Amino acid sequence: MTFKEQVSKLLNDGLLEKPEIFLIDLSISDTYKIIVTLDGDNGVSLQDCIDISRVIENNLDREEHDFALEVASVGVGSPLKLIRQYQKNVGRTLIVKTNEEKIEAQLVEANNEFIVLSWSAREPKKIGKGKETVQKRLEIPYNEIKEAVVTVNFN
């Protein structure tokens, strides 16, 4: 079993004990620096990171590989990568980039094929002068999303 396979197995074993936590990224450099990035349906606590770190660290032999280990939660403003991340952020505002446009809107649905965004827009009235507020709704398949980031609001 390679070092990466060993780390992956230990990581998966640790995540089985915490079904609300899921892996975003695992990278291992040539110098055996292990970086684990996690997210969770209800966020990731420091204790979650410590627990996953211990599962990996306590089951690897430092005599065999001198490794460094970093376990962290996904950062605020990091692009969403998994359908599960979209689903946990329903109700929040996203900035979504596709090949055609960039939209800032509320995520109202996330299923296995696409997301649904909703926002208000001011448009010219169909009859008469002036503008009116209309509610817009757009379905975007995941394969058309180049990047999606949850906006951070400090109100």
Score class of each variant (00 low, 15 high):
153 N>H: 11
110 A>R: 01
76 V>Q: 07
56 I>R: 06
103 I>E: 03
60 L>M: 12
15 L>D: 05
62 R>L: 13
124 P>M: 06
49 C>Y: 10
130 G>E: 06
142 Y>S: 04
60 L>Y: 11
150 V>D: 02
119 W>N: 07
117 L>W: 06
87 Q>M: 12
14 G>W: 04
105 A>P: 09
95 I>V: 15
129 K>A: 11
134 V>E: 01
149 V>S: 01
139 E>V: 02
5 E>V: 04
59 N>I: 11
96 V>A: 06
95 I>R: 15
58 N>Y: 08
17 E>V: 02
100 E>W: 01
11 L>Q: 03
80 L>R: 03
135 Q>P: 00
78 S>C: 03
129 K>F: 11
2 T>P: 14
44 V>T: 07
96 V>P: 07
42 N>D: 14
36 V>T: 05
64 E>G: 00
121 A>T: 10
151 T>M: 12
123 E>A: 11
54 R>F: 05
93 T>C: 02
50 I>R: 04
38 L>D: 05
147 E>P: 00
38 L>T: 05
34 I>V: 13
6 Q>T: 13
92 R>Y: 09
15 L>Q: 08
85 Q>E: 15
53 S>W: 07
89 N>W: 03
153 N>Y: 11
83 I>N: 06
68 A>K: 13
105 A>T: 11
145 I>A: 07
66 D>K: 11
143 N>R: 12
109 E>V: 08
85 Q>M: 09
125 K>C: 10
21 I>G: 00
113 E>V: 05
4 K>R: 14
2 T>M: 08
43 G>P: 08
41 D>F: 11
111 N>Q: 06
144 E>C: 03
85 Q>K: 08
81 K>P: 00
32 Y>V: 03
96 V>W: 10
62 R>T: 14
55 V>A: 09
8 S>W: 05
129 K>S: 12
7 V>N: 01
12 N>Y: 09
127 I>N: 10
145 I>E: 02
69 L>R: 01
17 E>S: 09
144 E>Y: 09
79 P>N: 10
72 A>L: 12
132 E>Q: 15
15 L>E: 04
8 S>A: 12
99 N>D: 15
132 E>R: 14
98 T>V: 11
59 N>A: 06
80 L>N: 03
113 E>D: 14
20 E>Y: 06
128 G>S: 05
93 T>V: 14
118 S>I: 03
109 E>I: 02
103 I>S: 02
65 H>A: 07
16 L>T: 10
138 L>W: 07
47 Q>M: 12
132 E>V: 15
135 Q>G: 00
134 V>P: 00
55 V>P: 00
130 G>M: 07
72 A>K: 15
83 I>H: 04
78 S>G: 04
124 P>K: 15
122 R>A: 11
140 I>H: 04
35 I>W: 00
148 A>C: 07
26 L>N: 03
13 D>W: 04
114 F>E: 12
37 T>A: 02
86 Y>M: 04
107 L>I: 11
106 Q>K: 14
125 K>R: 15
10 L>T: 02
147 E>K: 15
72 A>P: 00
5 E>P: 01
17 E>D: 13
149 V>L: 05
38 L>G: 04
145 I>L: 08
100 E>H: 10
89 N>Y: 13
119 W>I: 08
9 K>R: 12
95 I>F: 01
7 V>M: 04
109 E>Q: 14
49 C>I: 10
32 Y>C: 05
30 D>A: 12
137 R>N: 07
128 G>K: 08
146 K>S: 06
19 P>M: 10
5 E>K: 13
97 K>N: 14
